[in-house]
Amino acid sequence: MTILQTLVNGIVLGALYACLAVGFSLVWGVLNIINMLHGSLIILGGYLTFFAWHSYGIHPLLALPFVAIFIFCIGYVLQLTLINRVVNEPVLTTLTLTFGLDLILYNIMNVYYTATPVRVTLDLGIVQIGNIVMPVDRLLGMALALILTGLLYVVMRGSRIGRAIVAVRMDRTAAELMGVRVDRIYAVTFGIGALMAGAAGAVFSMVYPVTTNLTGAFLGKAFVVCVIGGLGSVPGALVGGLVLGIIESFAGQFFGPQHALTVGFLLMLFLLVVKPTGLTGIKGYE
């Protein structure tokens, strides 16, 4: 019984991990940018949702699309005006730029909202099947992760913009010659990554305390999930998140919570050595 509960805990946690990693993975895969802003964007989404709820009584699920679109705009503008200038430089340059932007955003939030943890105290309750308990807000996070991932998959496969993103990822020069406006595609891609972060933040505001203290933890998780699942692949983020969630859950149960994170990192190191393309082994969006 405990094992089943541990597995369920792991799956639900894994879905949250996938949720926070999908956008990060997309940006990394297509733009080859390690987006250090990702954690702060999630928290920004959390804050916007929290204040919409706290000041105007707007339900987080209602606020979610607006928050996501707003953060899409931030991402789009950032990429178009700043990151595009260095996007073709080595990865260290873009990393430094996003790191700097992260410091700015992080400290603005610290000054404006303070680091005091807040939370949308809206408890959606639990679903109980036999002895197995599942919190509704986490199931919601899971649904969101699946929907976002699915949507992204469809967009990448079916839409003009999706094909353009894939084309740019495969061969930037050729895509440019075919008339794809590469800078716009970059901006849209970064915007979608930001949108995913914002949407994750909206769901997280009901699960986690919203505080700038967590930006680093979220970013670190996104990183590990991507390495485990496979860099730059959306299904990879889903697989990586679920695997990490389940492993941490079982490790916490059997080795104690002190070692749960260690086991996750060990898996990452192991995969880096044995299978650097990650569990799914898919590269990009080919």
């Binding site: 946690l13 986690y208 680093g216 998780k221 941490e248 079982f250 749960a260 260690t262």
Partner: peptide, 12 residues
Amino acid sequence: QLYAVGTLDHSA
């Protein structure tokens, strides 16, 4: 038991 700094989940 102790949990590690950076733990994002206490369910286990």
